[in-house]
Design a protein around this nucleic acid. Structure first.
Lengths: 177, 177
DNA sequence: AATTGAATAGTCAGGATTGACTAATTCAAA
DNA sequence: TTTGAATTAGTCAATCCTGACTATTCAATT
């Protein structure tokens, strides 16, 4: 349901055709979702059927390519957007961390190996944090976007701190055994 | 792919039939995933086809109910488990927060309303944190499970701290305008 | 003894998702 | 100016996922 909100929110800002929309989301809203192209098209079509957006065949006949369809928010869509937005802001929907599954079974591996593997995970995490701290990303956000970048930063910092503790814990176990 | 790891890891501990497995995951591993029953059955069947687990029709003919199928790890499955486990531990796979989508469009609402709505979100978050801190949950985890509970705790604390900042930020904006 | 409600055990149709594909256009280098 | 790679634009078949359903057993009430 947050995908519909996302699509409506972007279309609210500016009418777009499907490809453009998907590009925009994958570039500027990559922290929010990794929605795939066919999924985006599918949702757009469904929302058009509901009357939340209209499908406008692009007028300026461009040579001979199949005419692109431009999507535009309707008043009904605007209302839906506000409804979804309020719902989203007012509720907490938990996230799942698939990295936790490995941690759950960490005792299946010798502590030394576990610590080594988690070391690689930490490098990846640190790289993700560096990417968020990179000025290029920083520059990109005013308004709501800035808050999301800050969120991502905090989240990754907490992840790294926890992972350090996990590594220390396992190391400790391995030594005191 | 983390679902297969999860199922294999549980079956490694003890052979089970589908229903039991799903119950176990939804009770004791609820922080890791919210896998649905039909999905669990589907994955079990697929893994049986791959030869990672065997389907054993339950022997002790229980009255006249359709015989339950018990799933049991094979040596191939054990190898796959270790393979997936190593991969899981060594990599970082980012999580998406669908609560962020609302934040991205927060400027569409008057600051006062946004702050009020985020207040509800905070209550929900705080309740989730209280649930994790509840002794019942605490008691449940030794080994890997304890680490996951700690993870959840840290994550929720970071979420609340960030949300407080967001609320302060929006409030501030609304006042200084 | 019959009825109700919950727990156990699993299935299935239908919708959601996506990897892989087509096909035109642009751009750069050989 | 021809080749080849990258970008733009979208589609489709195959797979994945799950809400809703069936059906049995068990326990407690009436």
């Amino acid at each position: 349901m947050y995908r519909e909100l996302l699509l409506l929110g972007v279309l609210r800002h500016k009418q777009m055709h499907g490809y453009e929309l998907h590009e925009f989301i994958n570039r500027d809203l990559a922290f929010c979702t990794d929605i795939k192209k066919p999924t985006a098209y599918h949702l757009l079509q469904k929302m058009a059927e509901q009357g939340w957006i209209t499908e406008i065949p692009e007028t300026n006949a461009p040579t001979n390519r199949p005419p692109r369809t431009v999507y535009q928010l309707t008043p009904v869509g605007e209302a839906k957007f506000l409804d979804y937005l309020r719902q989203n802001l007012a509720t907490y929907s938990p996230s799942y961390f698939n990295g936790d599954v490995g941690i759950a079974f960490i005792e299946a591996l010798p502590p030394e190996e576990a610590v080594e593997l988690l070391g690689y995970r930490k490098v990846a995490l640190q790289k993700a944090l560096d990417a968020v701290n990179h000025p290029h990303v920083e520059a990109h956000g005013k308004g709501g976007m800035w808050l999301i970048i800050e969120h991502q930063k905090r989240h990754l910092q907490a992840e790294i701190a926890w992972l350090d503790d996990v590594i220390a814990h396992i190391s400790n176990q391995s030594h005191s055994q």
